[in-house]
C-alpha cells in the first residue's frame, strides 16, 4: 500500500484553476521530485496534501487515513507530515534548539528532557549541534533551512514535503541544504521535493514528476525523464532548467 495517495486534486484561486486534477502516489522510502515552471501549482499541491491550503475537490490519504475526510483529526495528520518552507519560517523568538523542540513539547506532548534530547539529536543530524543556542537572525540562510529540516524531523514524520527548500538561498549555501536532503533520502526518509535543482533530481529522485498548468504532464524515473521523455514539453523544460540552474549530477 502506498504511504501517500493523492487523487484528483483541484484548487482554484479566483478565476484561475491552479490544480486541475492531480493524482499521485508515494511509497515508503521514496523520494519524489516535482518540477515544473513557476505558477504551475507545485507549492499548492504540497500545501493541499496536509491541508495548509484547503483543496476544492479531490482526496488525500496518508496510509489508511483519509486526510481530506470530514472527521479527520487534522492536527494529528499534520504532525505526521513534515513541511519545509522556501523561506524557512523559523520562529524568530526561539533559539535553534527551541525551534526544533517546540513541536515535540507542545504538539507531541513529550517531556522537556526527552524533547531536548530529540531536538539535539536532530540538530546534530543536520550538522548544527553547535548552533543550538543561536537565534534564527544569527544563522545563515543555509543554517536556518537546516534547522527547519531538523524541526520537521523532530516530529518523527512519516514523510516530509519540501517546498523549494533552496530557492531563497545564495548559491554557495545551497549545497549544505541539499547535502542534508541527500542524506535523508539515503536513510530511507519518504520525501516529496519541489525544486529546480536538477542535479538533486537526477541523482536522488526515485521518480520525477513534471507539472505544468495544474496537471501532471509526465512522470517517470530520472533516467527516462532526462534521456527519453515521452512528451516533448518535458524534454524542453528539462533542457532549459538544466541550463539555467546547472546540472551538477
Amino acid at each position: 500500500m502506498p504511504l501517500l495517495r493523492v487523487e484528483d486534486l483541484h484548487k482554484r484561486y479566483g478565476t484561475e484553476e491552479v490544480l486541475r486534477g492531480v493524482s499521485l502516489t508515494v511509497v515508503k522510502g521514496e523520494t519524489k521530485v516535482v518540477i515544473g515552471p513557476s505558477g504551475t501549482g507545485k507549492s499548492t499541491l504540497l500545501r493541499c496534501i496536509n491541508r495548509l491550503t484547503e483543496p476544492d475537490r479531490g482526496r488525500v490519504w496518508l496510509g489508511d487515513t483519509e486526510v481530506t475526510g470530514k472527521g479527520t483529526n487534522l492536527n494529528r495528520i499534520r504532525s505526521q507530515i513534515g513541511f519545509v518552507f522556501q523561506d524557512f519560517n523559523l520562529f524568530t523568538h526561539l533559539t535553534a534548539l527551541d525551534n526544533v523542540r517546540l513541536g515535540p513539547l507542545r504538539v507531541k506532548g513529550l517531556g522537556k528532557k526527552e524533547a531536548t534530547e530529540r531536538a539535539m539529536a536532530e540538530l546534530a543530524r543536520v550538522g548544527l549541534a553547535d548552533k543550538a543556542g543561536a537565534y534564527p537572525a544569527e544563522l545563515s540562510g543555509g543554517q536556518q533551512q537546516r534547522v527547519s529540516i531538523a524541526r520537521a524531523l523532530a516530529m518523527d514524520p512519516q514523510l516530509i514535503l519540501f517546498d523549494e527548500p533552496t530557492s531563497a538561498l545564495d548559491p554557495e549555501l545551497i549545497g549544505e541544504v541539499l547535502g542534508v536532503m541527500v542524506k535523508l533520502a539515503e536513510e530511507g526518509m519518504t520525501m516529496i521535493v519541489v525544486t529546480h535543482e536538477m542535479g538533486f533530481a537526477r541523482s536522488v529522485a526515485d521518480e520525477i514528476v513534471f507539472m505544468e498548468r495544474g496537471v501532471i504532464v509526465e512522470q517517470g524515473s530520472p533516467e527516462k525523464m532526462f534521456r527519453s521523455p515521452e512528451v516533448a514539453r518535458t524534454g524542453d523544460f528539462l533542457r532549459k532548467i538544466s541550463e539555467l540552474y546547472g546540472d551538477a549530477a
Binding site: 496536509n50 495548509l52 487534522l74 492536527n75 494529528r76 495528520i77 499534520r78 504532525s79 505526521q80 507530515i81 513534515g82 513541511f83 518552507f85 523561506d87 519560517n89 523559523l90 520562529f91 524568530t92 517546540l102 513541536g103 507542545r106 504538539v107 527547519s148 524541526r151 516530529m155
Partner: peptide, 13 residues
C-alpha cells in the same frame, strides 16, 4: 510574518 503561523500549523499545532 504569517509564515511562522503556517509553520506552526504544519507541525500540527
Amino acid at each position: 510574518s504569517p509564515g511562522q503561523s503556517l509553520a506552526a500549523r504544519s507541525l500540527g499545532m
